[in-house]
Design a protein around this nucleic acid. Structure first.
Length: 854
RNA sequence: GCGGACGUGGCGGAACUGGUAGACGCGCAGCGUUGAGGUCGCUGUCCUCGCAAGAGGGUGGAAGUUCGAGUCUUCUCGUCCGCACCA
């Protein structure tokens, strides 16, 4: 018996698959297609465990579907533009293009060593001009179709570095490198009109059958359609008015103030003559651009001194505040506050000592006793203190109020969305150049098609602050394509979500100079199974859904929904370690001395073990996949990734779990390779009759085939593995050398090998070969189960007394109640539990349970 | 702050539409095998009490619906993810 040498075997099979082009595909109308796609990686340098998990999940599906007879497209590529390449350029003086290319080469090798079944001929990198030339064309078509437009919007501005900062580069309101206070700056930027598609994107969520509900809910909430009213408040002693949007016009009688955003035109105007107000506005602006920051900041307001007339109550006026929690992007950038029924408004009213008038009370409330203190009442109820609305429900009141406001001309019904248009301009070098030339005479002019692609210049330096494209001496200087006068290129590049919004379509015709080819796209799309992290649940997935519709509108493709099935995977976690000084330690710097005792391998000092957290470089709780691959092999890594946790949950990476997977692989090898078993190169005939024990094993084999198949279909890989292990344990206890057993033993081993092939492809190929087969397991059809072997004649059910388990009885399948009762009531445990008590009722559920109620 | 999830032995997790909670694996314990080289095999293992038969308790917590709740309902606590320029 030989030891399993995974190093040789895994490399050999990877070579075999590659040389035979086993996983390269073509369109073939005679076969059903299946497109498996995992979210492509950003080439950050080396693959991490999150990649390994993501791509293992996809590979199981791809290999399984291939075995099930599908024509499987399973491609891989690189989301190659992005900020880290620029950071590397600044830190290490490497060109982003060079850095990225090197990373891709490393990571490609790493992925190959995992044995993933990619069609590498379809590899794409988004920083390749052959890729991004098409999105430059798309963008120009978007302009023509009215999907792309320019407007002003705010960015985080680092005044010291003269750079726009990403949200993650702003730490506590300061630039991450300069530590300078970040300002907000308004720039003219390009946007895509995703809001035009809001209703469609919302409606169509219903059609996404194989998407997780939580992702669908998150997208619905993100789009945030709300029906309400636009209401006018006239400013006292002025012709101007403030328009607010509200979904609770029914609470208008309780309005005690209006609040407008700091960037609201009225606020800006007032600020020009009022230094204190200008100071407040700039304080609001320093809050940053992220919604989380704005919403968690303490609610503050500034009384403008203006008052507005209440649109319903004749001689009532209410004050106008500027408030830091009112967003200019949402609704009209102004609200009316009804403190009694909105917690945020209530907090605000208490802080600034504003009136609180309850206008809705719970139906059973004692009105003399109903008042609002610190908790707003947001529930259902009946209107009070509301003039003509008194006594009505919230829904009735909304309708009556809508009619009233429409009649007197101070309001109209409106639907608004939380969803904002997608800003795609980035003031960065390492991205796809926006193909526009700005001419003082002609305005923004699209670059003529024959001049595409617009390439990035390579003679750049990152020493000067700001965008290298902007700083470049000559790159931006061109003549206007329309009037011929000197003009300037756009020096902004696309948001990198632009590239990832259509790459799945590019994989269908990855090398075509004509971009997306309808025949190919129509054959392969939609993606049947898309797999990636939950962190993309909203943005990437929503942008891709929108982009697909935009491409459809411009005639590029025929479909509207790009991903018919989606699985989102959880994160990889690992224990954290700190030394006494509170510094983080890498797992391989730490040794477990048994139990809870951990020491630092270098200095022998005690190490504090922390709880398991998401693997991150900052906490050093990372394990490099390459070490696992070289120590245990790809199959072990793959098996462990799938064994314990279901894909959508977080996975704890543990050394002992890896050991467990490793032991199983070696056990499998021994079971097939043990020389006495006559398994090698000798097909054993199935005996004409099987004794009862062997028949039961045969049934178990077929049950396992059936269950593993359905488990894989439903992404229950951990269960599939558990079932195969069960079968392995049963088979392992069979004395294979006994001649009446050898057939079932061989049959069982073959089944296990075939069922595990998508999960651990290398060792199973090798064992398959050892069993005498000459064709690849990767090209062998999935085993089929015999339905007649799935059911047993008898069932064991539980017998309960008052819902408490008191014993089991074995019954013929589907037997009737009288037999079950007669057996069940005579069980010792049941007799004891019933004792002298009177039997009230007996509940019998066929094949499930017998419950005696006393 | 808003939105979305998750919570079951010492640990990762099973439990299909409410029907014997703890499959499978890890760890641990005992026994055996091996003893140059990541051992291997068998048995046991939810907790408490008991030598045992058995009894009682048990799915973050509290309440509810039901003959029966890990699963359904309400409240509550804890942890995590997203929030539009990280990808």
């Amino acid at each position: 018996m030989s030891r399993y040498n995974f190093k040789i075997t895994e490399g050999q099979w990877q070579k075999n698959w590659e040389e035979t082009r086993c996983f390269n595909v073509k369109e073939d109308d005679t076969l059903p297609k299946y497109y498996v796609l995992e979210m492509f990686p950003y080439p950050s340098g080396r693959i991490h465990m999150g990649h390994v998990r993501n791509y293992t999940l996809g590979d199981v599906v791809a290999r399984y579907k291939k075995a099930k007879g599908f024509n499987v497209l399973h491609p891989m590529g690189w989301d190659a533009f992005g900020l880290p390449a620029e950071n590397a350029a600044i830190a290490n003086k490497v060109l982003p293009a060079v850095w990225t290319k090197e990373n891709i080469n490393t990571m490609r090798q790493q992925l190959k060593s995992m044995g993933f079944s990619y069609d590498w001929d379809r590899e794409i990198a988004t920083c390749d001009p052959d890729y991004f030339v098409h999105e430059q064309r798309m963008f120009i078509d978007f302009i023509k179709a009215g999907i792309a437009y320019r407007k002003k919007s705010w960015v985080n501005w680092d005044p010291q570095e003269n750079t726009v900062l990403a949200n993650e580069q702003v730490i506590d309101g300061r630039g991450w490198r300069s530590n300078a206070l970040v300002e907000k700056k308004e720039l003219t930027q390009w946007f895509l009109k995703i809001s035009d598609f809001g209703d469609e994107l919302l409606e169509s969520i219903k059609s996404l059958g194989r998407w997780p509900d939580r992702v669908k809910t998150m997208q619905e909430n993100w789009i945030g359609r709300s029906e309400g009213m636009r209401i006018e408040f006239n400013i006292v002693n002025s012709k101007d008015k403030i328009e607010v949007f509200s979904t609770r016009a029914d609470t208008l009688f309780g309005a005690s103030f209006c609040a407008i955003a700091a960037n609201h035109p009225i606020a800006i105007e007032l600020g020009q003559n009022n230094d204190r107000l200008a100071g407040f506005i700039s304080k609001c602006n320093s809050l940053g651009t992220s919604e989380a920051q704005i919403e968690t900041a303490e609610k503050e307001g500034f009384d403008t001194g203006l008052r507005v007339n209440h649109p319903i109550i004749d001689d009532k006026t209410i004050p106008v505040f500027i408030a830091n929690f009112v967003l200019i992007e949402y609704g009209t950038g102004a609200i009316f506050g009804c403190p009694a029924h909105d917690q945020r408004d209530l907090d605000f009213a208490r802080k600034y000592d504003l009136e609180v008038v309850p206008v809705v009370a719970p139906e059973d409330a004692d009105l003399n006793d109903f008042n609002i203190d610190k908790i707003a009442y947001t529930g259902n109820g009946v209107h009070i203190n509301s003039g003509f609305l008194n006594g009505t429900s919230i829904d009735e009141a909304k309708e009556i109020m809508a009619q009233t406001l429409e009649k007197n001309g101070s309001g109209k019904r409106e639907v608004t969305y939380r969803l904002r248009d997608w800003g795609i301009s980035r003031q960065r070098y390492w991205g796809c150049p926006i193909p526009i030339i700005n001419c003082t005479e002609c305005g923004p002019v699209p670059v003529p098609d024959e001049q595409l692609p617009i390439l990035l210049p390579e003679d750049i330096n990152f020493d000067d602050p700001g965008n290298p494209l902007e700083n470049h001496a000559t790159w931006k200087k061109v003549d206007c394509p329309e009037c011929g006068q000197p003009a300037l290129r756009e020096t902004d590049t696309f948001d990198t979500f632009f590239e990832s919004s259509w790459y799945f379509a590019r994989f269908c015709s990855p090398t075509s100079p004509d971009g997306l080819i309808k025949n190919n796209v129509n054959y392969w799309l939609p993606v049947d199974q898309y797999i990636g992290g939950v962190e993309h649940a909203v943005l990437h997935l929503l942008y891709s859904r929108f982009f697909t519709r935009a491409l459809n509108k411009c005639g590029y493709i025929d479909l509207k929904e790009p991903f018919s099935g989606l699985v989102t995977q959880g994160m990889i976690c690992h224990e954290t370690y700190k030394n006494a000084d509170g510094q983080w330690l890498f797992p391989d710097e730490v040794v477990n001395k048994g139990g809870d005792k951990f020491i630092n391998q270098l200095d022998g000092q005690d190490v504090i073990r922390g709880r398991s957290e998401k693997m991150s470089k900052s906490k050093k709780n990372v394990v490099d996949p390459e070490i696992i691959i070289s120590d245990y092999g790809a199959d072990t890594a793959r098996l462990f990734m799938l064994s314990d946790s279901p894909p959508d949950r977080d996975l704890d990476w543990t050394e002992s779990g890896v050991e467990g997977a490793w032991k199983y692989i070696n056990k499998l090898w021994r079971m097939v390779d043990a020389p006495k078993n006559n398994l090698l190169h000798e097909m054993i005939e199935e005996p004409k009759t099987l004794d009862i024990e062997m028949l039961e094993i045969k049934q178990k084999i077929h049950q396992t085939i059936q269950l593993v198949g359905s488990d894989i279909e439903r992404f229950h890989f951990n269960k599939a593995i558990a079932r195969v292990r069960e079968l392995t344990n049963i088979l392992d206890s069979v004395d294979a050398e006994q001649s009446n057993n050898s057939w079932i033993y061989q049959e069982g081993c073959k089944t296990i090998i075939r069922l595990l092939n998508p999960i651990i492809p290398h060792i199973t190929e090798e064992l398959w070969k050892k069993l005498g087969y000459e064709t690849f397991l990767a090209e062998t059809p999935w085993p089929e189960h015999d339905p007649s072997l799935l059911t047993k004649d008898n069932v064991v059910i539980g017998v309960q007394v008052n819902g408490k388990n008191r014993g089991q009885i074995e019954l013929p399948k589907d037997c009737d109640q009288s037999l079950a009762e007669s057996l069940g009531l005579n069980l010792e445990g049941v007799i004891r539990a019933v004792a002298n008590k009177k039997i009230k009722k007996i509940i019998y559920v066929t094949n499930r349970i017998l419950n005696v109620v006393v």
